[in-house]
Amino acid sequence: MSIQHFRVALIPFFAAFCLPVFAHPETLVKVKDAEDQLGARVGYIELDLNSGKILESFRPEERFPMMSTFKVLLCGAVLSRVDAGQEQLGRRIHYSQNDLVEYSPVTEKHLTDGMTVRELCSAAITMSDNTAANLLLTTIGGPKELTAFLHNMGDHVTRLDRWEPELNEAIPNDERDTTMPAAMATTLRKLLTGELLTLASRQQLIDWMEADKVAGPLLRSALPAGWFIADKSGAGERGSRGIIAALGPDGKPSRIVVIYTTGSQATMDERNRQIAEIGASLIKHW
């Protein structure tokens, strides 16, 4: 067993022997301040990774656009098919120029040779490549099948209805392509620590998230040296922004954090800054 596999296998073990965790309302004060600064709703939840206990939450059962955070769930569904012998990570998928959609920095470079399922998941999570996500959605049967996968996990809230990039439209009061912070946090925890996926697939999923290259201005910008984070960000229309993450000190994750916002007129930089400040408060009061 590799060191990384050992780390993920012992996530519940280490967490069980940690000192009790206590909620700190100071972080919620910052979440509410972010709402004021952005002029928009902000949803927040913080779960203990081992027990699933909610440590703090704000608007945990209000719907927010998922945006690209759905790509972690998508690759979880792909990995479940791999575990069941219905898919192979090494299978190569070929596609054409007509398949390319807006923001496809990886797939646009491989029109000639195609990409493997493993490479597509890596591109979808680490670079948020939209064509990679659409190609992977095709392998599982489309958005409705991802929703069905989530329902089978016990998540009857999260739903995907459309493809990239239309799913980022974020129309107010439109339930399409949305989740709730509580539902997303619980589902992410199941994917990373539950028995739904094999140990190898859980490790692969967290490795992809740990290698995320496009979430630097968010929670990662607030992390002290030595902290662990595996995350996936999302951005959408109407001032929408979000991030889902597993993080913790001492090089291992111990909490799940989900943050979503929508309806702001603020710039992307300002949305990023507010999420980073929430992260800084979380870490300060850990």
Score class of each variant (00 low, 15 high):
residue 240 S to T: 09
residue 273 R to W: 04
residue 72 V to Q: 01
residue 91 R to M: 05
residue 263 G to I: 08
residue 113 D to Y: 07
residue 77 A to S: 08
residue 233 S to C: 04
residue 222 A to Q: 08
residue 71 K to Y: 00
residue 95 Y to V: 04
residue 180 M to A: 04
residue 121 C to Y: 01
residue 242 G to Q: 02
residue 202 R to K: 04
residue 173 N to R: 08
residue 91 R to G: 08
residue 229 I to G: 02
residue 165 P to Y: 06
residue 83 D to C: 08
residue 50 N to H: 10
residue 214 V to L: 14
residue 257 V to K: 01
residue 174 D to P: 02
residue 59 R to H: 13
residue 226 G to T: 08
residue 256 I to Q: 02
residue 211 A to L: 15
residue 217 P to G: 10
residue 264 S to W: 05
residue 270 E to K: 04
residue 187 T to R: 02
residue 129 D to S: 01
residue 268 M to T: 13
residue 110 H to R: 13
residue 250 D to P: 04
residue 130 N to V: 01
residue 266 A to K: 03
residue 251 G to W: 10
residue 279 G to S: 06
residue 107 T to R: 01
residue 206 I to C: 08
residue 165 P to I: 05
residue 203 Q to C: 03
residue 112 T to N: 13
residue 33 D to L: 07
residue 98 N to L: 12
residue 245 A to S: 07
residue 170 A to N: 10
residue 244 I to P: 00
residue 262 T to F: 06
residue 194 G to A: 12
residue 29 V to R: 11
residue 46 E to I: 14
residue 57 S to P: 02
residue 78 V to W: 03
residue 199 L to R: 05
residue 44 Y to R: 00
residue 98 N to A: 07
residue 258 V to M: 04
residue 285 H to L: 10
residue 98 N to Y: 10
residue 207 D to Q: 04
residue 50 N to S: 13
residue 276 A to P: 01
residue 86 Q to R: 09
residue 151 H to V: 04
residue 181 P to I: 15
residue 135 L to T: 11
residue 232 K to P: 00
residue 53 K to E: 06
residue 53 K to N: 13
residue 184 M to C: 03
residue 266 A to H: 05
residue 153 M to S: 05
residue 179 T to G: 01
residue 79 L to H: 02
residue 113 D to S: 04
residue 135 L to S: 10
residue 27 T to Q: 10
residue 135 L to R: 11
residue 139 T to F: 09
residue 245 A to D: 01
residue 153 M to V: 04
residue 92 R to G: 10
residue 284 K to A: 13
residue 60 P to N: 13
residue 104 S to Y: 04
residue 43 G to T: 02
residue 46 E to R: 08
residue 249 P to Y: 09
residue 26 E to K: 10
residue 111 L to M: 11
residue 278 I to A: 02
residue 101 V to Y: 08
residue 60 P to K: 10
residue 39 G to Y: 15
residue 137 L to F: 12
residue 29 V to N: 10
residue 99 D to N: 04
residue 94 H to F: 05
residue 175 E to Y: 11
residue 171 I to A: 15
residue 238 R to K: 04
residue 92 R to F: 10
residue 208 W to Y: 11
residue 142 G to P: 02
residue 220 R to M: 05
residue 86 Q to Y: 15
residue 201 S to R: 11
residue 189 R to Q: 15
residue 146 L to D: 01
residue 280 A to N: 09
residue 111 L to A: 11
residue 153 M to L: 04
residue 131 T to V: 14
residue 49 L to W: 13
residue 51 S to I: 05
residue 232 K to F: 00
residue 30 K to W: 04
residue 112 T to A: 12
residue 195 E to Y: 04
residue 177 D to N: 10
residue 205 L to I: 06
residue 96 S to K: 11
residue 56 E to Y: 09
residue 281 S to R: 11
residue 157 V to K: 06
residue 93 I to C: 15
residue 229 I to A: 14
residue 34 A to V: 10
residue 41 R to L: 12
residue 174 D to L: 11
residue 237 E to V: 08
residue 153 M to A: 04
residue 131 T to P: 07
residue 219 L to G: 03
residue 247 L to E: 02
residue 148 A to R: 05
residue 118 R to Y: 10
residue 35 E to L: 02
residue 250 D to F: 05
residue 270 E to L: 03
residue 215 A to F: 15
residue 140 I to T: 10
residue 199 L to N: 04
residue 85 G to V: 08
residue 219 L to A: 04
residue 95 Y to K: 02
residue 246 A to K: 14
residue 58 F to Y: 11
residue 175 E to A: 09
residue 265 Q to P: 10
residue 108 E to C: 15
residue 172 P to M: 11
residue 128 S to G: 03
residue 45 I to M: 08
residue 137 L to G: 05
residue 42 V to G: 02
residue 193 T to L: 10
residue 47 L to V: 08
residue 183 A to C: 08
residue 98 N to F: 09
residue 201 S to K: 15
residue 261 T to W: 06
residue 131 T to C: 07
residue 95 Y to A: 08
residue 62 E to K: 04
residue 46 E to V: 08
residue 241 R to S: 10
residue 216 G to W: 08
residue 227 W to K: 00
residue 157 V to R: 09
residue 254 S to T: 11
residue 112 T to D: 08
residue 132 A to G: 12
residue 239 G to P: 01
residue 28 L to K: 13
residue 274 Q to K: 09
residue 120 L to C: 07
residue 52 G to R: 11
residue 42 V to H: 03
residue 179 T to A: 03
residue 50 N to V: 07
residue 149 F to R: 15
residue 127 M to P: 02
residue 83 D to V: 09
residue 43 G to I: 01
residue 54 I to L: 12
residue 166 E to L: 12
residue 56 E to T: 08
residue 65 P to H: 07
residue 70 F to P: 01
residue 41 R to I: 12
residue 124 A to P: 01
residue 279 G to I: 11
residue 223 L to G: 13
residue 151 H to L: 06
residue 243 I to D: 03
residue 116 T to S: 07
residue 132 A to P: 00
residue 79 L to Y: 03
residue 50 N to Q: 10
residue 185 A to D: 00
residue 285 H to N: 10
residue 184 M to R: 00
residue 245 A to Q: 01
residue 207 D to V: 07
residue 73 L to M: 08
residue 197 L to V: 03
residue 189 R to L: 11
residue 103 Y to T: 14
residue 142 G to F: 02
residue 256 I to A: 08
residue 101 V to D: 11
residue 166 E to T: 11
residue 173 N to H: 10
residue 58 F to D: 02
residue 186 T to S: 12
residue 192 L to T: 15
residue 270 E to T: 04
residue 33 D to P: 01
residue 118 R to E: 11
residue 186 T to A: 13
residue 90 G to M: 06
residue 137 L to D: 02
residue 144 K to V: 06
residue 176 R to T: 05
residue 216 G to T: 08
residue 155 D to I: 02
residue 286 W to M: 08
residue 200 A to D: 10
residue 181 P to D: 01
residue 64 F to R: 00
residue 151 H to M: 07
residue 143 P to E: 07
residue 93 I to S: 05
residue 280 A to W: 14
residue 134 N to D: 08
residue 188 L to Y: 14
residue 254 S to K: 08
residue 43 G to V: 01
residue 269 D to F: 15
residue 42 V to L: 06
residue 44 Y to L: 05
residue 160 L to E: 02
residue 236 G to W: 02
residue 86 Q to M: 07
residue 221 S to Q: 11
residue 193 T to Q: 14
residue 186 T to H: 12
residue 224 P to M: 06
residue 29 V to W: 13
residue 203 Q to E: 04
residue 119 E to P: 01
residue 138 T to D: 12
residue 144 K to W: 07
residue 68 S to G: 00
residue 113 D to N: 03
residue 189 R to N: 14
residue 221 S to R: 08
residue 123 A to W: 03
residue 87 E to T: 14
residue 119 E to H: 14
residue 283 I to E: 12
residue 71 K to G: 00
residue 275 I to G: 01
residue 284 K to H: 15
residue 208 W to P: 01
residue 270 E to W: 15
residue 168 N to R: 07
residue 222 A to C: 10
residue 47 L to D: 02
residue 27 T to N: 15
residue 211 A to Q: 13
residue 116 T to K: 09
residue 205 L to N: 01
residue 225 A to Y: 15
residue 172 P to C: 13
residue 275 I to C: 14
residue 74 L to F: 00
residue 32 K to W: 15
residue 166 E to S: 13
residue 117 V to H: 03
residue 173 N to E: 04
residue 271 R to E: 14
residue 100 L to C: 07
residue 240 S to F: 03
residue 186 T to P: 12
residue 178 T to M: 03
residue 65 P to D: 01
residue 94 H to T: 05
residue 261 T to V: 15
residue 243 I to M: 14
